[in-house]
Amino acid sequence: MATIIDKVTLEHVASLARLEITPEEEEPLLGDLERILGHVAQLSSVDTSAIVSKRPAMTELRPDDPREGLTREEGLGGAPAMRDGFVVVRNVMGGEDE
């Protein structure tokens, strides 16, 4: 049986999800994922050509009235680093999506 997920794909998916896979984790994880994905892949045999999605629609929207939010302390009191009211993080310039 062809593999569904190989090492390269796993590493790609892990980087998308910002998860690091240690070398020790890799083998057992690949095995588990392969079996789980193999199990769920059985859906390909279900004929869904006639299926129409019936997602419901929103019944009401929110009126445009300002509401009390959180203070900075309530909302961001647990942030690892703050300065002058800003949340401080490592420089992300250039390397990431925006």
Binding site: R62, D64, D65, P66, R67, E68, G69, L70, T71, R72, G75, L76, D84, G85, F86, V87
Partner: peptide, 21 residues
């Protein structure tokens, strides 16, 4: 007057992180 998905004000605000929920 309010944000797309919450009731926080859209008013231009100099003080950072004060229109949050």
């Amino acid at each position: 007057r309010t944000k797309m998905f919450c009731g926080c004000s859209t008013a231009f605000e100099d003080e950072p992180n004060t229109h949050v929920c």
